[in-house]
Design a binder for these strands. Structure first.
Length: 481
RNA sequence: GGUCCUGUGGCCGAGUGGCUAGGCAGAGCUCUGCAAAAGCUCCUACACCAGUUCGAAUCUGGUCGGGACCUCCA
C-alpha cells in the first residue's frame, strides 16, 4: 500500500513515484549553509523538512545516506574575517559551532555526514582539472570558468535557455568570460586572502563546485535526491548539474527537491530588507517545538508566513494537543496496575494510516496535522464517555509514531504547556506570581462557598487575559488570545 | 522584458471532476456552584469571464490581482 511514494521533482515540475537508483538505499545531498553568520529560520525550514523526508524514507524501509554540507570558504566569510581581523577559518569554525548549538535545540537526528568544503580542496582541484581536460572549462588570468555552451542541457532544471539568460543579465560581465553566463570554478586569491596552491596558481574554489565534488566523493556520481531552498535552483543547482554531468556523462540527481521560503509579515526575509529572524532568537523567544510545528503545518512547497498572530495560533494549537497528551499520561499513571487486556492497535489505526498515506503523497504535512487534530478530538470524546487504559495507551502510541517522524510531540506535557503559557503571558500585563496568588485566594473563597468573591477574582483575571478552569487536579490557568 | 508559481470561508491552510479537510475566531447546547476545558451542533468557501462535461471551485482559454527566479540569499 505504501510502495508508491510520490515526491515532487523540480526537474520535471511534477510529482513522480519515487524509486531509488539502488534498491533499498537512498543517497540524499542537501545544500547546507555558508557559515559566516547565525542561521535564520529559513535555513531551519530546510533542515526540518529534509529531516522529515529522511525519516519518511527510512520508514519506507530505505537506508538513507544523508549528506548536509557546510560551505566554509567563500567571499562572505572572507569579508567577515577581514572586518573582524580574524582568519577565515576562525569565522567558519565559530559559526559551525554556533549552528550545531542551535541544531541541538531542535532535537532532531543529525545528517549522516556534514562535510566541509575546505576538507575537499584536493578533490576540487582534480575535479576542475578533469573538466578542463574534457574541455568543459577554460583558464583565463588564473581563473577557471565553466563553459556553459559546452553543456547542451544547461538550463534544464530552472527551465531557462542560454539566450534568455544572456539578455536578462543585469550585472557587469567579467571580460574574461567567453560567454556572459559562464561561471567560476576556481578563482585567484589575493595575498591576504586564504588560498590553496593549484595548477592555476594560488586560489580558492568558486561557489557551486564544492557541492558537486562533495556529493561525488561521498555519494558517487549519481544520487537519488538533491535538495535545498528553492532560490538555489538557479544558479546554484543548475551549475552543479552542469559540472557533475559534464564530468560523468550521467544524470547527476534523480530527484531535485526544493523547499519554499519563510516570509515575515508577508515580506520575504532578506538581508537587504533587514527582516531576518535568526533561528536562535526565535527559539529563545518562543520555543524550538513551536518552530518545528509552524514549519511543518504548511506544505513544504508553499511559502510560509510568520506573523505574531500566526505564532500565537500555533502555540494555542500545541497547547490543545499537549493538553490531551497530558490527560492520557495522567490516566496511565493512575491506572498503572490495570491489566492491558486489549493490546490491538484499533482505535486510531485508520487515522495512522491516513497520516502515512499523506506523508506518502509528497510529504503532505497539513493533512497529517488535520488527522492529528481528529485523533485528539476522538480521544477526548472516547475518553469522556468510557475511560479506558487502552485508549490512552494507543493515543500515546499514535503520537509516538507520528511525532517520531515529524520530530515533534516528545516534550513533557505538563512542563511544556506551562512553558507555552508563559510565552503567551509575556504579552499580558500580569505575572505568573500574581496569577498563582489570585488562584490561591480564590480557592480559599471557593472552599467556604463564597462564590461571589471567587467569581470576582476569576472575572478580574479574565479581563487581563487569563482564563481559569477548575479540574479534579486543582485550578489551572491558560492565556486567552 | 524573459521564465515559472499562485488567487479557497472573518483569518490561517489542504485537497479533489460529483461525496466533511483541519486549526484559530464566532454562535447554540451538554457538563459545571457558576465558568473554563472537553464533547456535540452550526457558520460551508473556492478571484472574474467564457468553454469542455451529465456535472468544475477542481480541466482548457482569456481577464484582473499576488509572488518567485533571472544578482549573494534557504
Amino acid at each position: 500500500m505504501l510502495d508508491n511514494f510520490k515526491l515532487y521533482n523540480s526537474l520535471s515540475n511534477e510529482k513522480e513515484i519515487f524509486k531509488s537508483i539502488t534498491p533499498g538505499v537512498v543517497k540524499m545531498y542537501v545544500c547546507g549553509p555558508t557559515v559566516y553568520d547565525l542561521l535564520h529560520v529559513g535555513n531551519f525550514r530546510g533542515l526540518i523538512f529534509f529531516n522529515l523526508l529522511r525519516n519518511w524514507l527510512q520508514y519506507l524501509g530505505y537506508s538513507v545516506n544523508y549528506v548536509y554540507n557546510y560551505t566554509d570558504i567563500d567571499d562572505k566569510i572572507i569579508k567577515k574575517s577581514q572586518d573582524e581581523n580574524k582568519l577565515a577559518s576562525e569565522i567558519s569554525a565559530k559559526f559551525i559551532e554556533e549552528f550545531e548549538k542551535d541544531f541541538k535545540l531542535l532535537k532532531i537526528p543529525k545528517a549522516s555526514q556534514n562535510p566541509k568544503c575546505t576538507d575537499y580542496i584536493d578533490d576540487i582541484i582534480s575535479f576542475i582539472s578533469n573538466l578542463i581536460k574534457k574541455e568543459f572549462a577554460y583558464v583565463k588570468n588564473k581563473t577557471v570558468f565553466f563553459s556553459c555552451n559546452k553543456f547542451t542541457a544547461y538550463g534544464k532544471l530552472s527551465g531557462k535557455n542560454i539566450e534568455d539568460l544572456i539578455s536578462g543579465h543585469r550585472i557587469t560581465v567579467n571580460q574574461d568570460k567567453k560567454n556572459p553566463i559562464d561561471f567560476v570554478l576556481w578563482k585567484p586569491s589575493k595575498s591576504k586572502e586564504p588560498g590553496w596552491e593549484s595548477p592555476w596558481g594560488r586560489g580558492r574554489p568558486g561557489w557551486h563546485i564544492e557541492c558537486s565534488v562533495m556529493a561525488n566523493e561521498l555519494l558517487g556520481d549519481q544520487i537519488d535526491i538533491h535538495g535545498g531552498g528553492m532560490d538555489l535552483i538557479f544558479p546554484h543547482h543548475e551549475n552543479e548539474i552542469a559540472q557533475s554531468e559534464s564530468m560523468s556523462g550521467k544524470n547527476f540527481a534523480k530527484y531535485w527537491v526544493h523547499n519554499n521560503f519563510i516570509k515575515f509579515d508577508d515580506q520575504k526575509m532578506s538581508k537587504s530588507l533587514g527582516n531576518i529572524i535568526k533561528a536562535r532568537s526565535f527559539m529563545s523567544d518562543y520555543n524550538p517545538e513551536v518552530l518545528k510545528y509552524m514549519i511543518l503545518s504548511v506544505h513544504y512547497r508553499s511559502s510560509l508566513n510568520f506573523s505574531f498572530k500566526q505564532i500565537n495560533q500555533s502555540i494555542i494549537s500545541l497547547i490543545k494537543i499537549y493538553t490531551a497528551l497530558e490527560k492520557a499520561n495522567n490516566y496511565i499513571k493512575e491506572k498503572d496496575n490495570e491489566k492491558d487486556n486489549d493490546s490491538n492497535f484499533s482505535y486510531f489505526e485508520n487515522d495512522l494510516n491516513i497520516v502515512y498515506k499523506s506523508l506518502n503523497n509528497d510529504i503532505n504535512t497539513p493533512i497529517v496535522f488535520a488527522q492529528v487534530f481528529n485523533v485528539v478530538r476522538k480521544f477526548n470524546n472516547y475518553f469522556k464517555n468510557k475511560k479506558n487504559i487502552n485508549i490512552a495507551k494507543e493515543f500515546l502510541s499514535f503520537f509516538n509514531r507520528v511525532g517520531g517522524l515529524l520530530g515533534l510531540f516528545s516534550e513533557e506535557p505538563k512542563k511544556f504547556i506551562l512553558e507555552l503559557n508563559l510565552i503567551l503571558l509575556k504579552e499580558k500585563d500580569i505575572s505568573l506570581e500574581e496569577i498563582e496568588e489570585k488562584i490561591k485566594k480564590r480557592d480559599i473563597a471557593r472552599k467556604i462557598k463564597n462564590f461571589k468573591d471567587s467569581d470576582l477574582i476569576r472575572d478580574d483575571l479574565l479581563k487581563k487575559g487569563i482564563e481559569l478552569k477548575d479540574t479534579i487536579n486543582g485550578t489551572k490557568w491558560s492565556v486567552r488570545l
